[in-house]
Design a protein around this nucleic acid. Structure first.
Lengths: 233, 233
DNA sequence: CGAACTGTTGAGAGGCTTCAAGCCTAGTGG
DNA sequence: CCACTAGGCTTGAAGCCTCTCAACAGTTCG
């Protein structure tokens, strides 16, 4: 039998913790809470698909969502991962375009759907919200520009090292320096923009160089400054 | 003697034509016009440098500005070109970060500087302005994401063809199908993310395949659907 | 237990980069 | 006015990084 999908807890439906909503008035927060709808998503679920029309954006209150584009021959290009506290699908919504990415659950998640009308209401009534939103998009744009430069100029080896460090920043480590996100080799390849086999070979080399330790999908960091050097940072 | 720098004409200082400012009230427009300052920039001038703190954003009313990041060994990665009607430097300004790109004049330009305070004033007082701003950033973010996918998955040959088509869209052609922007081979390479020599060889191949015609930096399109096919579109 | 997916390793091919040398053009200074 | 220089452009050769193909082991799950 499939494991039961956990109901969203109170903690999962509370959006007050989101920095983005910090400056809302009580009235606005009430409206947001009234109009949002939260639900659980099983691992593997597609939240929305590239090319679809979106009805709102989502706040991630639990789990991890993979955001990717589908390129040549259906090969995925991973744009980013979203975790608790982050929002997804807002880009296409704001520019009123069809979704240009697909969002897939890779760790059992709870998402709160906020309708487009609510988003517009908040933008119209609370400039601090709009301003905060602008900052979020602008940061993501900088990251995208940085990534363009990396991918265009660095070798696959350098990029893989950098991606590992990036994951370390975003998902932290347990007490043994082990990365707390589980990705397939293919997913790593789709972040770096390379072939699965290349990732496998390079990870293996990093292990031989005592930079990391591997155990299935678990990656343990042994020498972070060494990795940083490989990444060219 | 160096040629004189043309004074900005009335046309060069008129921001009313910008879509971004369409929804401003008369009062807001007056304030904008009072607080902005326009001046001419000679070809080759650096408008702002990566790492510097910006005091405002710029509206391009004439000429062409190259926006690029400096990567490994000082190699440029061109992020985009801005022309009449577009704004630059707004990203770093809004996210309150240091500039992450450098902006260089590649065709004699007129820029209108709008102070940060004015930008904030507009965001606070006119939600339609803020909303429009959000749409601009979101569109640019989509383009960046698209480009990441291309650069990660396509060959240099495909990317070069795509870049040529992109330039065609953004800068149009004269009556003889000749591209109206003059770029060095190196700049083309820095857009595509490859070596200058590779661009030269591939352009030469495109010419042999009767896709384009070359005359110095002038590029004339002979077979656009052919190019599109090469680009994998 | 088999099917499907993931991970691993090897071999071969080829796209692209790098290095090097020479040509051409435009701008500079005598 | 012309030689000179610097920067851009072009071409060739060599080699490496990375991809693709292929085969197989390990794992998960119905």
């Amino acid at each position: 039998m499939r494991t039961m999908l956990k109901r969203p807890t109170d903690d999962d439906t509370d959006l007050a913790g989101f920095l983005l909503f910090k400056k809302l008035t009580d009235e606005e927060l009430n409206r947001l809470n009234f109009e949002k709808s939260c639900s659980s998503y099983r691992k593997g679920t597609i939240v929305y698909r590239e090319g679809s029309r979106l009805t709102g954006f989502y706040c991630v209150t639990r789990g991890i969502i993979k955001i990717f584009k589908t390129g040549i021959d259906g090969k995925e290009q991973i744009i980013r991962f979203a975790k608790r506290g982050e929002i997804i699908a807002y880009r296409s919504l704001l520019s009123q375009e069809l979704a240009c990415t697909t969002a897939k659950v890779i760790e059992e998640a709870v998402l709160c759907h906020v309708p487009y009308q609510t988003l517009l209401y908040l933008i119209q009534n609370n400039w601090q919200f709009a301003h905060h939103m602008l900052q979020i998009v602008c940061r993501e744009l900088r990251e995208a520009n940085d990534y363009i430069t990396d991918i265009a100029q660095k070798s696959v080896r350098e990029r893989l090292a950098e991606v590992l460090l990036l994951l370390k920043e975003n998902f932290e480590l347990d007490h043994q320096n082990t990365l707390q996100i589980s990705l397939t080799r293919e997913e790593l390849a789709n972040m770096v923009g390379t072939a699965t086999e290349s990732v496998i070979r390079l990870l293996s080399e990093f292990r031989q160089d005592n930079l990391i330790e591997l155990q299935g999908r678990k990656i343990k960091f042994l020498n972070i400054s060494g990795l940083r050097k490989v990444a060219g940072l």
